[in-house]
Design a protein around this nucleic acid. Structure first.
Length: 213
DNA sequence: ATCCCGAGGG
DNA sequence: CCCTCTGGAT
């Protein structure tokens, strides 16, 4: 039994980042789904700046489905990738309206069939609004998970399943946000602050970085 | 310049 | 597997 199991390190991260939570503003599953689609390559803060007007203009899936593309693009422009995102949101909501009664499905198998929705977005929605313990793998989770040795792959889907294996189920709902915060604040891509890392003792990459040079 | 809680297409 | 899509902040 190694001294620094994922559970032990996650407990430390929980103490270090006690308020790590989803930073996107939303009031229902559809709003979270749309906000998460907008958040690709964009800060949550920026997403939260556009969503009040967006959610007011399009209160349900049918509204997005009938949206004028140019108007929708305009409302989300500052989030980047605005043509792609507008197209995805519209196509996604069209399917929601036509095949799911306008509701966001609570199953992974259905979510990932929606245009513009991959496993990362689906897992965020499942975890946040449907109370399913799910792990959403983004760039931070991928990087930090590999450095910690909890996973060993650059493929996000493989990483998700390796994490489900390495992390006790109790932590599935928390590991994503904790690793994202840790990745942002400490375990950055370029110059990780290993000397100040709260879980350095359990990190092979950090140990090597500090000793090996 | 480089990064930000990705997904789809070739 | 690599490329593209995009604006804003630092």
């Amino acid at each position: 039994m190694p001294a620094s199991t994922p559970a032990r390190l996650l407990r430390i991260l929980e103490q270090t980042y006690p308020d790590a939570r989803c930073a996107l503003d939303y009031r229902n599953p559809l709003e979270l789904l749309v906000a998460t689609m907008l958040s690709a390559q964009c800060t949550d803060e920026r997403v939260n700046m556009v969503t009040p007007a967006l959610f007011a203009r399009y209160p349900d899936a049918a509204s997005y489905a009938e949206a004028e593309p140019a108007e929708l693009e305009d409302l989300i422009h500052s989030c980047g990738f605005y043509r792609q995102k507008a197209k995805s949101i519209r196509a996604c909501c069209r399917r929601l309206a036509e095949e799911f009664g306008g509701e966001v499905p609570a199953e992974m198998e259905h979510l990932v069939t929606l245009p513009g929705v991959g496993r990362k977005t689906a897992n965020v929605v499942l975890n946040e609004v449907f109370g399913q313990p799910a792990i959403a793998v983004d760039t931070h989770v991928l990087r930090t998970g590999n450095r910690l040795g909890w996973i060993s792959t650059r493929d996000p889907v493989k990483a998700e399943f390796q994490l489900l294996d390495a992390v006790p189920k109790k932590w599935w709902g928390r590991v994503t946000l904790l690793l994202i915060h840790h990745g942002r604040n400490c375990c950055s891509a370029r110059k990780p602050l290993c000397a100040d890392c709260p879980i350095l003792k359990g990190c092979p990459h950090g140990q090597e970085a500090l000793s090996g040079g």
